[in-house]
Design a protein around this nucleic acid. Structure first.
Lengths: 272, 272
DNA sequence: GCGACTTTGTGCCTGCGTTCACAAGCGGCT
DNA sequence: AGCCGCTTGTGAACGCAGGCACAAAGTCGC
């Protein structure tokens, strides 16, 4: 046991029991032409999450002037198994050169293409509390940005006040503003009580992808994709590990917690 | 496809290739006494994450005076399959009554026990920016709190200033303060550049569970458990879904996009 | 130009997590 | 007291994801 990502086990909450396959596959035979389209449909969600991580690492490498990487190097920097990395990359096509590795630039382009980052996504943040502020200012982060182009709240005192350069609008204006600014992703950072109402408004405004920070199970039509980040849940999972650890501590003669003197992620220059 | 949790697919980053089983099982025969301890070791991580969600839902029910629930009701409220819910609950023991359901109070107690919430965890937040503020004020959230009892930053102007009732200390004091306040969970909300250094200090201070908000792959000894929440990754996953959706949009004779029929941004051209 | 070395891409196998489906168990009703 | 219906708990099957290991493929050196 060592480092665990946030994922791999959280609360998927499918409203539609059918078609909640973790494989993102639109059951649809290959269309004639190039295979890229088809490939893109078959990428497992787990792989998508990792691709985003690779992209971040690659961006860092590009900034340091690295021209090409082997799967081994990249996998270490990203904290995954190299076979898994190669398999993930194979989902998006074959852009490596055998005997050499991958060209950083090419890989970045391809991952961005698959993740749909070539077309900039406009993000709306609803709920301008502490978290909302943090999100609004998150502006340009590694590997190109998701421009936050709309902010909403109920508090009359906030109306028009620019936060991170964007003026705050009233949540009643969600439909019009979202339509005007072509919002594709909505972020809910409101108190739990108002989350569902806000969500409904976003959906009504045509937003089909929502990132929910409120500790509530949102009810949405099947066409809408919701991902949730629940701080309390994260802490509770960690708490579980603390407890488990304390529990097994008495087990003194367990296999020695071997130091990390593994031959692996050594030497590599990690972006500190 | 409908609502998807944050998990199920993210970046697990095991540093130790061995023993990174997703089943949290310490291979160890049953100890004499009660079987509860043993059970606790065999809970899949995915189930743990969901248990936290059940706990939140149950807390809400208790507040509304609900005395007992069936697996069906609870599963709907938590947004999961009822069979999965029952299996999850079976991991922690049999506390239901056949033909009736589960007693809310009992279930809450048991889940709290398994998640180690009976012993309050002390949390330290490092990096008092916008996000740090949000976390510091997160104080008492649903289903009992993780008291944030220490805050750290490098900014001299913040030293001693109370945020959310807790004074800020310098990160150089992490070892002493963490020891004194028996911190069990560390939260990293710093810029990426300082994350690894902060992480090292926390580890040095004996913290074995870390929640990382910085977009960096942390290097830690195997004894330390890291969970990460990466906003950019979350957005990129959503972006992927937007792209995929736009991609399959040309499939005009697909099942009607139904309800809330707003002029969705269909017809948008696929990124290359 | 050819051989040897390096690294990719992937088929196959293993194992976990999810789902199904049903037997066991309990309360209520007659 | 006995039966009936409801809900739990779980054995078994299925399917996806991860990891291994190797063949394909390309480069570099001679």
């Amino acid at each position: 046991m060592a480092q665990r990502g946030q994922s791999d086990a959280a609360g998927r909450t499918p409203r539609a029991p059918a078609e909640n396959a973790s494989e993102i596959t639109t059951p649809m035979p290959a269309i004639g032409g190039n295979g890229l389209r088809d490939r893109a449909r078959a990428i497992p969600e787990a792989a998508v999450a990792r691709l985003a991580v690779y992209l971040r690492v690659l961006s860092g490498m590009r900034e340091q002037g690295v021209g090409s990487v082997s799967s081994e190097e990249l996998s270490v920097a990203a904290g995954v198994n190299s076979a898994k990395l190669r398999k993930d990359l194979s989902y998006i096509g074959s852009y490596g050169t055998r005997g050499v590795g991958y060209e950083v630039e090419v890989l970045i382009d391809q991952i961005e293409r698959v993740l749909g980052l070539t077309r900039e996504q406009s993000v709306a943040v609803v709920g301008i509390g502490n978290l909302g502020h943090a999100l609004a200012n998150y502006g340009g982060f590694p590997g190109r940005g998701f421009p936050v182009t709309a902010l909403f709240d109920v508090d009359a005192d906030l109306m028009g006040v620019p936060v991170g350069g964007i003026p705050v609008d009233h949540i009643d204006d969600i439909p019009t503003v979202c339509a005007a600014r072509e919002i594709t992703i909505g972020v809910i950072a409101t108190p739990p009580a108002s989350a569902q109402a806000v969500c409904d408004r976003l959906v009504q405004a045509g937003v089909e992808c929502i990132l929910n920070f409120a500790p509530v199970v949102l009810q949405v039509p099947e066409t809408v994709e919701v991902r949730k980040v629940d701080l309390a849940v994260e802490l509770q999972i960690l708490s579980f590990h603390v407890a488990r650890r304390a529990d097994s501590a008495p087990d003194v003669d367990a296999p020695a917690p071997r130091v990390n003197g593994l031959p692996r992620n050594n030497g590599v220059v990690m972006p500190r």
